[in-house]
């Protein structure tokens, strides 16, 4: 913020909260990797201490960060925008959000390209090729397992698309000085995001505990893409389809789980936005935070646009 406007808002720009948050996140993920790395949980469980230490740092940074903005009223909020000479066409906060999204694209690119790599390396199940007794030599995709439950994936897709719309409508309601509509749209977004996670957890639970190879039908003519109702997807899924069942399960749960974690983080941000909207109200001059959150939420929607065909349809 330029000094000529007489706003001493250096305390906002000088907040230590993002730094604490990031260091905490880094320590947390290092601890997670070290504690779980290796086969059959061979990681050193002592590293869970590092994980929780990082988590504590992350939570500390988070609450400091929220507190910084929570105490601002709308007029102060107007003054936190800054423009740097180097990227002067957009605000620094917005540019920062885009940089963050840039890194997020790489995260999901890694997961999806790893998935594609496995799909290219392992042949899909076909009665005409030797897939081993349990079909362990062939790829039996999650899409085959999910097929009869596809409606929930479709509902989730519509829920995320609709939530993207409600975020946009919340932004425009704020711009039109309609705080009540802003809050309503934000709450609708939260409900849709929560619906997504509830259905996701239900779906995971079904897939984990369902028998996808009924012994009574052992030897039935399994064809690619067969319906789940036949209980005849693959012998290796007789005890359910879970993260440690097979490579198919690992790629499915890691990718959809990472995406679900992003939805969860979005819900936490929405709780803050709804509370802030109730406290102060967003308006024509002060709605930037909704726009930045919207970018994140649309990105999460965007990722789902690719995860859905990759894992649910193909």
């Amino acid at each position: 913020m330029s000094d000529e406007h007489g706003h001493d808002d250096h305390e906002h720009h000088g907040s230590i909260a993002p730094f604490v948050f990031c260091i905490g996140a880094a320590i947390m993920f290092i601890g997670l990797v070290m504690a779980t790395a290796g086969n059959e949980g061979a990681g050193d469980s002592g590293y869970w201490f590092v994980f929780f230490l990082g988590l504590a740092g992350l939570m500390t940074g988070f609450f400091l960060w929220v507190q910084d903005y929570w105490d601002q009223d709308s007029e102060e909020g107007e003054d936190i925008e800054a423009y740097h000479d180097f990227w002067s066409s957009i605000s620094t906060r917005k540019f920062g959000m885009w940089i963050f999204l840039l890194t997020e694209v790489m995260v999901f690119s890694t997961l999806l390209s790893a998935y594609l790599r496995y799909r290219a390396a392992v042949p899909d199940y076909d009665p005409g090729i030797d897939c081993g007794v349990d079909f362990e030599l062939c790829w039996v995709p999650a899409a085959d397992v999910i097929r009869s439950h596809l409606i929930f994936g479709v509902i989730n897709t519509f829920a995320l698309l609709l939530s993207s719309l409600t975020v946009v409508l919340a932004l425009y309601a704020a711009r039109n000085n309609n705080p009540k509509a802003t809050t309503r749209y934000l709450m609708a977004t939260f409900v849709l995001g929560a619906l997504f996670l509830v259905l996701k957890i239900w779906e995971w639970n079904e897939m984990k505990n369902y028998n996808f190879w009924d012994e009574e039908h052992y030897g039935c003519s399994v064809t690619k893409g067969q319906d789940i109702a036949h209980h005849c997807i693959a012998p290796k899924y007789a005890d359910g389809f879970w993260i440690d069942t097979s490579l198919e399960g690992s790629t499915f749960y890691i990718t959809t789980g990472t995406h679900g974690a992003h939805v969860f983080v979005g819900l936490i941000a929405l709780v803050y936005l709804i509370a802030k909207a109730n406290k102060d109200g967003y308006n024509e001059e002060y709605h930037d935070t909704i726009e930045l959150f919207g970018l994140y939420w649309h990105y999460v929607d965007l990722v789902w646009v690719f995860v859905f065909p990759f894992f649910y349809l193909y």
Partner: peptide
């Protein structure tokens, strides 16, 4: 589309 354009770089986004 930020409208907080109070700096000297005031840009009409």
């Amino acid at each position: 589309m930020s409208e907080e354009t109070t700096s000297e770089h005031a840009h009409d986004e």
